[in-house]
Design a protein around this nucleic acid. Sequence first.
DNA 1: GTCTATACGAAGATAGAC
DNA 2: GTCTATCTTCGTATAGAC
Lengths: 182, 182
Amino acid sequence: MTQSRQQLVAGAADMLRRRGLNATSIREVAKHAQAPLGSTYHYFPGGKQQLATEAVRWASDTVAEILRAKLKAGPVDGLRGFLALWREIITGNDFEAGCTVVAVSIEADSTALAAAADAFSTWEEILADSLRSHGAENAEQLATLIVASVEGAVVLCRAQRSAVPLERVGAQLEDLVRAATR
Amino acid sequence: MTQSRQQLVAGAADMLRRRGLNATSIREVAKHAQAPLGSTYHYFPGGKQQLATEAVRWASDTVAEILRAKLKAGPVDGLRGFLALWREIITGNDFEAGCTVVAVSIEADSTALAAAADAFSTWEEILADSLRSHGAENAEQLATLIVASVEGAVVLCRAQRSAVPLERVGAQLEDLVRAATR
DNA sequence: GTCTATACGAAGATAGAC
DNA sequence: GTCTATCTTCGTATAGAC
């Protein structure tokens, strides 16, 4: 059933961003999705690596979709939406969740890692396109800074159990975006 | 012996930044340091959590020391030293190593996580002190942006197997530091 | 075709031999 | 006091019962 499959992927993505790759067991993913263990290997014959790869792609697409939607109102509003998204993830989960893509980037190898690289590149490109079309000359550079600093801030927020890093980073990024666009 | 103890801590820090917390076993740390498994529990009765905590503190102190030394030549040179440090870790290990503190931040709980939070705070304070003493009005904000964006860039570099994110972030941070200080 | 039960290995931690 | 051998638990993955 496609329903169960999607639930496994989304559930895996959620567990990955909370505990990391190696602390997330297939057993728990199956239990969390109320699916038997065998189903997991039925849907994902490639095992844990395949599940992790698809979870990263799912998380990547989810964020990309929100980012694209928010950017329709302009780069500043897009940035704000991006920041609000992460702020909600951080504070809405009592500082116990981070970014699925970062978690996989740090622990995974080959295929899942490649999916993580694609996720970052996609977000960077979406941001750069918007910045460029609004007159920014350093669009690629600024887009990379936004992705890197927000992801880094999410890590700091989690460790320090505070939303302050994200707020500080957001304020400065907004100034930079305003200055770069017209 | 204190020699073996230090070797266990340093070796653990290195393995943590490569594989992450949960993929780093006490067995391998002991083997890597050419110490028997029992020694590890002799030196670190608190088990894996204690070892991880001390590894984070060791990594934190190592970076803090380099940061302080480089900042003596001013904020811009300090930033450059900070960037060079991470660039060397990334490229010198074929994009297979990242930051010990980030790895622990994403996977650890309680004590080790608190050590990670302290590490980030320490680096932020060191940078903020330098920026403030050189006339920056937004010293704390800028220090947070530096730590967050560099740590985030390290994650991106690893995933994308490229030093470009760190270069892009570094160039923009240098402009910001120049503009903020006098 | 779905799911339960199990195989097999490796993890953290400890007890007890030298 | 140092280290080896072992206990227990949990991981991934699979084989075979419904």
